[in-house]
Write a protein that binds this DNA or RNA. Structure first.
Lengths: 324, 324
DNA sequence: ATGAAAGCGCTAACAA
DNA sequence: TTGTTAGCGCTTTCAT
């Protein structure tokens, strides 16, 4: 339309070569008039670069992941990368199929949280595909993968020690399904470490689904026992909130009757009454770091890195001494 | 590698034509051994279909958007579509550039929430590009765009009427920046409708940024006046939560000293103490519907539709009679 | 400063 | 049942 070759248009659009002022003017005019848009697909095919990264999280309904994705997306935008998003709903099958899709779409890298690093079919595909990725939230196990996380076990240990120090002896753990979360497993280990440290062998663990809004059934079951727990350690803040609701429904007051502790440090925990005692993961920064590191690995072929951030215990009102 | 032509491989991989059992077996074997992955880019270029939709929201930090994106993503996955995600941070410039990127990536449709439909450069690009899109949360104005929303003005009117009915006469509105949200404008109109309906002409509107976690300054200013408000109407739940915090910081109790009402119906509002009085938008379903309708428009060229869902008022503890 | 042409990986006629 | 081939839109040498 501009009476020039496609090569010249390419050079004009990308500024990738010399174009005379006059031809550039003509091309600009024609582009505006015709509504021409360079087709990224063609460019991607030719250059073998997509400037796209894949992001896979279990669910956006948990603010810990929404915040992380927010951090990732902002960093990506800054660096000129596009974000393909998928959620797994904590299902390993959906993890694998999402990763397959990403790989076929030729994403240049991934940031993801999987159910369990060790059992992940998705991660095997990824490593054999040889494309860089960063695990987010998943604990470090195989140090040949880049990861960003906190020490879940230690944080859980410290949290439960606090509970024990206040005098709690019957502490139940409401754990997200172990098969769906290696974080949950680590936190459970920390819980047991703490009990053992205090010479207590009454472990009381109830697994619940992560998508479960209502844990009344499980809580009721625990409270019908002869010696109900005086405190609950929950493997996420979202589960802690559900636990508090369930307790309230059966007439238990938190924290006077029973204490509840969460994990994650989602910001709403602070505004609740009682505010949540929890361990804070800086989700948004973790997302940002993951993205930045991923881009380093893509562009500069930087080596794998395992970043374990210090966690932070947040004292809330939901944990007090046990009733006498 | 399998000793067959690319055409045969294509047929085998896609099941798009006859392939003998033996050749299929060979191809499968070679694919597994070599780690071959069909390149979507090539296919996309050839077929001129990307099976990708763009999603643009202001921010994932507000659960109303995170929930909506969650709904969109699930629906997309069900229908075999990929999701390219971007956030605008309530900036119209970033809206436009995200839409440009989407368009160049040849997304087949978009679901988006823009600052203001009427002033949106992004929407002009979109409509002239002739690709289907669905506005989410934005009120219906130009009915030639598909939209899914509630009647913001009416909901705000009803909410503020409730406040007036309880006896409040000095009601301030803490509004998200009008330039960043046409919802905020509509809700403000509903607020004024209600005041007018009760013959009150003391409108008291303070604009705040959406990303603003801390509204202490604005709240303090209002409370240093001779007759401070007895109630606050906030244009979102997130702002309402910030308002409650600011009030608490200056020693005001909600709701005994002052009432606060939000808008959106994010689920945490229910677990707060006091629980939030608000108007509920069913974000996840809105996302699902948006995605489903978008795909109808893509596949079957269904006409534009404007769906205005009934809103629902949620009675919470944050609204009571004004102190005597 | 510009153009011609090859080729990225794929699909879809068409031919055999 | 399989192969040959053109071409999707782009970038990039290599000529001119």
């Amino acid at each position: 339309m501009a009476g020039v070759s496609v090569a010249t248009v390419s050079r004009a659009v990308n500024g990738s070569g010399p174009v005379s002022l006059e031809t550039r003017a003509i091309i600009d005019r024609v582009i505006n008039e015709s509504g021409f848009r360079p087709n990224s697909i063609g460019r991607q095919l030719k250059t073998a670069r997509t400037h796209t990264i894949g992001v896979l999280v279990p669910s956006l309904k948990n603010p810990i992941f929404a915040d992380a994705v927010n951090g990732i997306e902002c960093a990506a935008q800054n660096k000129g990368y596009n974000v393909l998003l998928a959620s797994s709903g904590y299902s390993t099958d959906r993890e694998s199929s999402a990763v397959d899709t990403f790989l076929n779409s030729r994403v240049e890298g991934l940031v993801l949280t999987v159910a369990d690093e060790e059992k992940s079919q998705a991660l095997s595909s990824l490593s054999s595909a040889g494309i860089p990725f960063v695990l987010m939230f998943n604990p470090v196990k195989n140090s040949s993968y880049s990861t960003i996380s906190i020490d879940n076990r230690k944080a859980a240990f410290e949290l439960v020690c606090q509970m024990l120090k206040l005098g709690h002896r019957r502490i139940a753990m409401i754990a997200g399904k172990f098969s769906e979360s290696d974080r949950s497993i680590e936190r459970q280990a920390g819980y047991q470490d703490a009990l053992r440290h205090y010479g207590i062998d009454q472990v009381l663990i109830t697994e619940v689904g992560f998508e479960n809004q209502d844990v009344s059934e499980q809580i009721n079951a625990l409270h019908e026992a002869k010696n109900p727990p005086t405190a609950y350690f929950c493997s996420t803040d979202v589960i802690a909130i559900a636990t508090i609701r369930a307790l309230t429904q059966i007439g238990k007051n938190v924290p006077t009757d029973v204490s509840v502790v969460g994990f994650d440090g989602i910001s709403v925990g602070e505004w609740l009454t009682p505010s949540l005692t929890t361990a804070v993961q800086p989700a948004e920064q973790m997302g940002e770091w993951a993205m930045q590191h991923l881009i380093e690995r893509i562009d500069e072929d930087v080596p794998v890195k395992n970043l374990v951030l210090p966690h932070q215990l947040r004292q809330g009102e939901s944990l007090v001494n046990p009733p006498i």
